[in-house]
């Protein structure tokens, strides 16, 4: 992104100030096309968001957040079960995915011998995994749950396994980037003072890479929180009216509840679903905002 933006900025600036060597009509047409493409994407997104906000505007009330879903009174139906379910899912997804992801990334970056074919195979697979459709991770989670001997996979555990598998490649890749960005000199200095590779990694490399790791992890989580497809496959409920109590508690998630309500015939449910979409958007924007905050606050330059 950064290269594209900077280049684009340079090009526009030079065109605007007239210092460019490329004044030809072809260049201008191309630039126009680029602007059009950008505006098209942004405008469609804005229309979609504004339309959703307008549709849901009559339901921005407390009941939306604190009440369970209701069929008896659709006008006060709420998303408490989904919001709590999503919160639980996020906590356990992070617990599963973060340690595993960071450990895998550290191994690949600091310890693995890149000349070995199996390490190269793992790397190749990691790159591919990041592009696998999310629904496949749902199937994988169902298989994992069956292997672990659980009949019902529509629980906190099943959902968290699916989402953890989903964001694992993202976490590994961003952690490796962050670890790679730590200058060679820091490692060399530490090793020269007599520290082992393990001590160097644990006390120097990893702490220096934490802002990058945190950013990647949060971005991964903000992707996971909006996913419905893998959760549908895992068999999360469309409707529950109790709070999660543990790992094996049946739950629903906010995107699942939205998905379920949008296909109902009553207008009230669709309005509520629109309002819930805005809640979900705020949650995702909040997580992304947190990621940007951490990056800006702790960013170091060497």
């Amino acid at each position: 992104m950064s290269i594209a933006t900077t280049t684009a900025r340079e090009v526009t600036q030079s065109l605007a100030t007239g210092r460019s060597k490329e004044h030809g009509p072809a260049a201008l047409i191309f630039l126009g096309l680029l602007w059009f493409s950008m505006f098209f994407g942004v405008v469609v997104l804005l229309v979609l968001i504004i339309d959703t906000i307008i549709e849901g505007s009559s339901r921005f009330d407390g009941a939306l957040l604190t009440e369970y879903g209701s069929r008896v009174s659709p006008e006060t139906t709420g998303f408490r079960a989904g919001i709590l379910g999503s919160a639980w899912l996020m906590v356990f997804t992070a617990l599963f995915a973060v340690p595993l992801g960071i450990a895998a990334a550290l191994y690949l970056e600091e310890f693995a011998n890149r000349d070995r074919w199996w390490n190269r195979l793992i790397e190749l697979n990691l790159q591919n995994l990041a592009a696998v459709p999310s629904i496949v991770y749902g199937l994988l989670a169902v298989a994992v749950m069956a292997l672990l001997g659980f009949d019902n996979s529509g629980t906190v555990l099943g959902g968290a396994i699916a989402l953890a598998l989903l964001i694992l490649p993202v976490i590994i890749i961003t952690t490796r980037e962050a670890v790679r960005a730590v200058p060679r000199e820091i490692r060399d200095g530490s090793l020269a003072l007599g520290a082992t590779v393990w001590q160097t990694t644990w006390r120097q490399t990893l702490p220096s890479a934490i802002p990058g790791i945190a950013t990647g992890t949060i971005l991964g989580l903000s992707r996971a929180i909006g996913e419905a497809a893998p959760l549908v496959v895992v068999g999360l409920a469309g409707s529950v009216r109790f709070d999660p109590e543990g790992l094996l508690s049946s739950i629903t998630a906010l995107p699942m509840q939205i998905f379920s309500l949008t296909s109902q015939s009553q207008e009230d449910f669709q309005t509520a679903a629109s309002a819930a979409i805005v809640v979900l958007l705020v949650m995702i924007l909040g997580l992304n905002g947190l990621a940007i905050f951490i990056r800006n606050k702790f960013q170091r330059t060497w």
Binding site: T66, I83, L84, A87, V282, G286, L287, L290, N296
Partner: peptide, 25 residues
């Protein structure tokens, strides 16, 4: 401005999430 608004949004999001659990039980 961005640095100001970002944690604000984040806090809001978590406050909203927390609301859901406030009167549990």
């Amino acid at each position: 401005f961005r640095r100001g608004i970002v944690p604000g949004v984040a806090v809001l999001a978590f406050a909203l999430t927390a609301c859901g659990g406030a009167d549990a039980g």
